[in-house]
């Protein structure tokens, strides 16, 4: 083999090897284990802590309210639909209680009149005609809406 061809071949081999070395160094460990992605990214996606605890967690302290709600028309709605958690699940909800105002705007999210909300089993009404600006929870118990307060 002429010397020049050999040198050309040698430099080709050297460059390819260096490329492969760098590529190996830069590619994350679990890349390509399951497919064209980093397999440990699946675990990364599992990491965050759930904010929403679920009803059982709420009922463990507030059994009475939970029973009241379960017996009435709002039974299908879970606690955290209205009581949006403000803190991570690992903490006590006494620190930052998820209070609800029970204002017209709040109840109106479901019960205000909207043409797209008709015939879906959710009563809608014009609050102005009903009781003016009075807040819903002044008469209705939010956990059992048909138990009117006196």
């Amino acid at each position: 083999m002429p010397k020049i061809i050999f040198r050309l071949f040698l430099s080709f081999v050297v460059f390819v090897s260096i490329f492969i070395l760098i590529q190996r160094y830069l590619t994350p460990n679990s890349f390509g284990e399951y497919g064209h992605y980093r397999a440990s990214a699946i675990d990364d996606n599992m990491l965050s802590v759930p904010f929403y605890k679920g009803e059982e967690e709420c009922a463990s302290c507030h059994q009475e309210v939970y029973d009241l709600k379960s017996a009435d028309i709002h039974s299908g709605i879970r606690c955290e639909s209205c009581h949006m958690p403000k803190i991570a699940a690992s903490k006590d909800c006494k620190i930052n209680p998820p209070k609800v105002e029970g204002s017209l705007n709040f109840c109106g999210q479901c019960h205000a009149i909207n043409a797209g909300r008709l015939k879906k089993g959710v009563p809608t009404l014009n609050f102005k005609d009903h009781k003016g600006d009075q807040n819903c929870i002044e008469c209705h118990n939010a956990h059992a809406p048909w138990e009117l307060k006196e």
């Binding site: 996606n45 759930p50 904010f51 929403y52 299908g76 639909s81 479901c110 089993g121």
Partner: peptide
């Protein structure tokens, strides 16, 4: 994904009132 892999439902499903 962090919820469903722990046996919980997604947050949107959890809160949907209807």
């Amino acid at each position: 994904y962090h919820r469903i892999t722990k046996g919980l439902e997604p947050a949107c499903v959890e809160v949907c009132p209807t």
